[in-house]
Structure formats: structure tokens, C-alpha cells
Design a protein around this nucleic acid. Structure first.
Lengths: 171, 171
DNA sequence: AGACTCCTGAGAACGGTTGTCAAACTCCCG
DNA sequence: CGGGAGTTTGACAACCGTTCTCAGGAGTCT
């Protein structure tokens, strides 16, 4: 059975305070900034168990890094993510669910699942294209690392924010 | 300027022969089986340059591994991938493109992009759920590593095939 | 309180990917 | 066809995110 430890609740609390997708390492750093003594391995373990329990959603950044977010709804949904500030809107896609099932059937495929995320620039960021790349949901004095992709040093040609969720059985 | 070397054409040729998404390491192994003397770093470099040039499509497996495939069309399209044999069908999604743009606009987001892939079980695999996990496009005596996910040893709770493409400006 | 487990944390290990750099090779020119 | 300039290659190290290991610490039950 899952025990409620100080570390586990700290992670859950931080996720509740945030509104954007964050990597495990970002969350760890933020917890440290909050003064929580917590190990990186514990953050990974906790996030994984939360994800397994459907408590948090997981995306993959363009570089394959895992990003976590506590979504309001636990049912199937998609995300519309601001590529500048990472603000995320949960959206329904009945049109897409139906389309996916139909396309699959047309090609003779069964048991169709799909992954799909939308990326764009939110109204706020479009209005003020300058700074504003931190965490719009405030509350935590965490790191203001706006760029989701820029962790590698090399010549990554594709700096776009581009994650995906695990597939969810459609329609 | 890009020079045509033996290694580069070997990679291009292999990709032309294959019909499924393959990881860089799988491709490297397959090239070795073909008797091509080629370094792993070269395979990575070549794939990256091909991807940059839009010659090949890149997905991310559920574990974040990059998967490559030479698609027939270079324009925007999506993929319907068999989760068993990895056979891939290129598909159009005008419905989705329109839907994505509309949803983005509704929420005040601009410059909408999207990622989306479909997964299912193809007719062949559904009919014969036993073996058949190798490379359906034959031609190469490459490795028959059917499972795209099972490389890690740990307790990965999610063995689903679940990649994503880089986003493409929608609508 | 005491015992029994599970959880934690520091660091090692791991797997995929990229950087390094001398040697080999392509391409262009005469 | 031979030479020269500059790109590519390949073996290996380095990196980065993530997971494993295991002794010590903390929750839970009685």
C-alpha cells in the first residue's frame, strides 16, 4: 500500500500548484528551492507512481524528456500548450476520436489508439512577445526556465515544444 | 555541401527498403548485417541530416527513443502504425487540421501546430496474433526485434507503442 | 513503544545520443 | 589521371535523462 510520506505529499502539492508541464528535474529543482529535502530518485519514483495511478499526465518533449502535469480531469483528453509559457488548456476532441476510429477501420486496423497534442502561442504571449517565459501559475519561487527544449547543448535543429501523451483508446 | 559517401547512400538505401519506423541502433545493426562497415555515430549523423532535410520522418517511441522512416510524401501527413509489426500507413487528416485550428482559435491561441499519430493492430496481425513481429517489408536479413518498447529492463508499466512526430503547422 | 515494512537518498549504472579528433575519403581542378 | 582542400568517418569519451542498488530512516500496525 502507498504510504503518505513528506516527500510524496510535497511532490503532489507542487504539482497542484503548477499549471504547466514540467520535467522531473525541473520539479526536483523547484522542490529544493522550496526547501524540501528530497532526492531526485524519489521525485522520479513518485512521478512514476502518480502517473501509473492516473493522477498525472505525461508528455514527451521533442527531445524525449518526460513532462508531468496534474490535470483536472482523469478521463481521456488532449492538451493545447503554449509554446512560450507552457500554459496548458485541457481540451476534448470528439471530432478527432471519431475520425481516428474511422480512419483506422478504413485501413483494416483494429483497436485504434491515438496520441495528439496542440501547440500554439497563447493570447498573453502573443500580446507581449518579450520576456514572460516563466511560470504563469506563480505560487512557487521555482526556476524560470521557459524553454522546454533547450537542455542539450548541441546543434538540435528543432527547438520546438513538441511532446506527446501516452495513447488513449479512442472514440 | 553534402557529399555522397558510401555510408550515406547505404543508409538511404536501407531506409528505402524498409516500410516501418526503425531506431537508429536497429538501422545500424541492420546495416552491419548487410555487410556495410559503418559507425554508429555516422548512422546518427546521417539520419539527423536526412531528417533535417525532410527526407525522413521522425517519431519518438514511448520510451523517448527516436524512430525513423522514409515516407513517400514530404508534405504534412500523419501515421497509422501497427503496434505489432510496425507497418505504417501514411494518412491525411484534413478534419483534424481544421479542428485543431478552430480549437486553438477558440482558446485565443495563435500559430497552431499539432502532433498526432494513430496506433492499432493491422488486419494481418489481427488474423495471426502469434509470431509475425519481424519486418514485413522483407528484403533485409535484419534483426527480428518486433517489440518496439521492450528495451529497458525495469518495471516500465506502459509497454505501449507510442511515438510522436515533430509538429507541423496545421490547417 | 516495538516490530515490521516500505520509502528514501546518494551514487552507480544504463541506454540513447552527441561531441571529439586524427585518419580516410570526395570532389574539384588542372 | 594526380593533387589539394575540405568534408566525413569511426572509435571512444562525454552527456543527459532515467532507473537500479542498498543501507539507513520513516510510516504503520499492534
Amino acid at each position: 500500500m502507498q504510504r503518505m510520506t513528506r516527500q510524496r505529499s510535497a511532490v503532489a502539492e507542487l504539482l497542484a500548484d503548477l499549471d504547466e508541464f514540467r520535467s522531473a528535474q525541473q520539479l526536483h529543482e523547484q522542490l529544493r528551492h522550496r526547501g524540501e529535502g528530497i532526492g531526485l530518485a524519489t521525485v522520479y519514483r513518485t512521478l512514476q507512481s502518480l502517473a501509473d495511478g492516473g493522477e498525472v499526465d505525461v508528455l514527451r518533449s521533442g527531445e524525449g524528456e518526460a513532462l508531468y502535469r496534474r490535470c483536472a480531469r482523469r478521463e481521456h483528453h488532449h492538451h493545447l500548450v503554449c509554446r512560450t509559457c507552457r500554459t496548458t488548456v485541457e481540451i476534448d476532441g470528439p471530432t478527432v476520436e471519431a475520425w481516428a476510429a474511422q480512419v483506422g477501420a478504413t485501413h483494416g486496423f483494429s483497436d485504434i489508439e491515438h496520441t495528439m497534442e496542440l501547440f500554439g502561442t497563447c493570447a498573453d504571449c502573443a500580446a507581449d512577445p518579450s520576456a514572460r517565459s516563466g511560470s504563469p501559475s506563480g505560487s512557487s519561487g521555482g526556476p524560470q526556465n521557459g524553454s522546454p527544449s533547450g537542455s542539450r547543448s548541441g546543434s538540435q535543429t528543432d527547438p520546438r515544444t513538441a511532446p506527446r501523451t501516452g495513447p488513449t483508446t479512442g472514440a
